[in-house]
Each structure stands twice: as structure tokens, then as C-alpha cells.
Nucleic acid binder design. Structure first.
Length: 191
DNA sequence: GTTCTAGAAC
DNA sequence: GTTCTAGAAC
């Protein structure tokens, strides 16, 4: 399918690059799911996390360094970010997500969007790095587990709130952004 | 990955 | 009647 190759084409466009090295580049996600959402991609044609082994550990470190660099360039706080890979990627080029934890964005539209960043469907950089070091490969999640994680309730990433639907979660997340202290005291029925 | 939209949920 | 979700896309 052609849409799944879009990232490989995107990194060839100079205007897409925010920063780059000889090994990897950083671009803005075309449909950002938070205020800040960047992708770090190797120039080498590595299709996915399932093509990695121990020999790629230095490459991963380079991706991670660029992730830190883009956050610095944007003048925002590293600790406000999730940095990692999708356990079940859709796009055919290895890409490290660098996404701010606000998740306030009009492009966040589905339960799948939320759960792919806020359950085990999101593999933090360090978790993937350690697994690769230990086992020399990354294994796919069983389909039953993927289905289970996709079906999980919409749990806020900043408090105990469980949203009844996506618009409710989005409203709640805006609350965190505007008033980080009081939003956690709201009852779940208020939304 | 997104768009579109039927019909389920409210 | 309106909002929201979830599956098809040749």
C-alpha cells in the first residue's frame, strides 16, 4: 500500500527536516497527536522494530540523541515527553515517536490513537533498547493482547480519570493544560 | 496512516 | 434528533 511508504518519501524532502545528522533525521508528525509530536527516522532503510538486533544499538542511541536535540531546539521540557515506538507500527520505516504528554490536538480522533500511545502498545525507548540488548530481537505482541489493549477504557495519562468517550477525554486533557492542579479533583461524572 | 459514513449509542 | 464509533477503502 502506498500510504504506508509515505514516511520514507517524506524524509527526502529538505523542507520536512527539523534537524538531521549523517545517520538520522527529525521531522514533524504530519498529524500531530499533541502540541509537540516529532518523528526520528534513520536514513538507512530499516522497515520496523522487528528488523532490529544488537548491532543496531548504536543506531538507536543516535535516534535518542536526536530526540533530545529536537526537544532542546523547541525549547521545551524533556520530562514532559513520551519517547518510544509503536508495538504495532503502521508506517513502513522505523520511526521513534517524540510526543508531549498533553495530547491536546485536533488530530487525536480515535480510541486507537489514544491507546496506541498510552498502553503497552507504546514501547518506551529504554524498554525497547533493553529488550534488544537482552534478546537480540523484538517480538510481536500476540493478536489477542493487541485487541485487549486497543479495547482498554480511556484512562487519563495524568490522573485517575476514566473517560466515557473520546470527546470527554479530550475535554479533560484541555483541563490539565489550563489548570493542572484542580482538574484531578473533578469527579468522573462531571465530564 | 487518514477519510468517509452507516448505524449504534445516547 | 444528534453524537460518536468503527470498519471499508479495488
Amino acid at each position: 500500500m502506498s500510504w504506508s511508504n509515505a514516511l520514507a518519501k517524506e524524509i527526502l524532502k529538505p523542507e520536512s527536516l527539523i534537524i538531521s545528522s549523517e545517520i538520522a533525521v527529525v521531522i514533524a508528525d504530519k498529524f500531530p497527536k499533541a502540541h509537540h509530536h516529532y518523528l526520528v527516522l534513520p536514513l538507512a532503510d530499516i522497515p520496523s522494530i522487528f528488523h532490529l538486533n544488537r548491532s543496531h544499538l548504536p543506531l538507536l542511541e543516535e535516534l535518542h540523541l536526536l530526540a533530545k536535540n529536537v526537544v532542546e531546539v523547541k525549547g521545551v521540557q524533556w520530562q514532559d515527553f513520551n519517547v518510544g515506538f509503536h508495538a504495532e507500527p503502521s508506517m513502513q520505516r522505523l520511526h521513534l515517536h517524540v510526543i508531549s504528554r498533553d495530547f491536546v490536538s485536533t488530530s487525536l480522533k480515535t480510541k486507537k490513537h489514544w491507546n496506541s500511545f498510552n498502553t503497552e502498545l507504546f514501547v518506551p525507548y529504554t524498554k525497547l533498547y533493553d529488550q534488544l540488548e537482552k534478546e537480540n530481537s523484538i517480538s510481536r505482541l500476540p493478536k489477542s493482547l493487541k485487541d485487549e489493549l486497543l479495547a482498554k477504557p480511556l484512562i487519563c495519562n495524568q490522573c485517575e480519570f476514566v473517560a466515557r468517550n473520546l470527546p470527554s477525554l479530550k475535554g479533560h486533557l484541555v483541563g490539565h493544560l489550563q489548570d493542572p492542579k484542580s482538574v484531578c479533583q473533578r469527579t468522573t461524572s462531571a465530564d
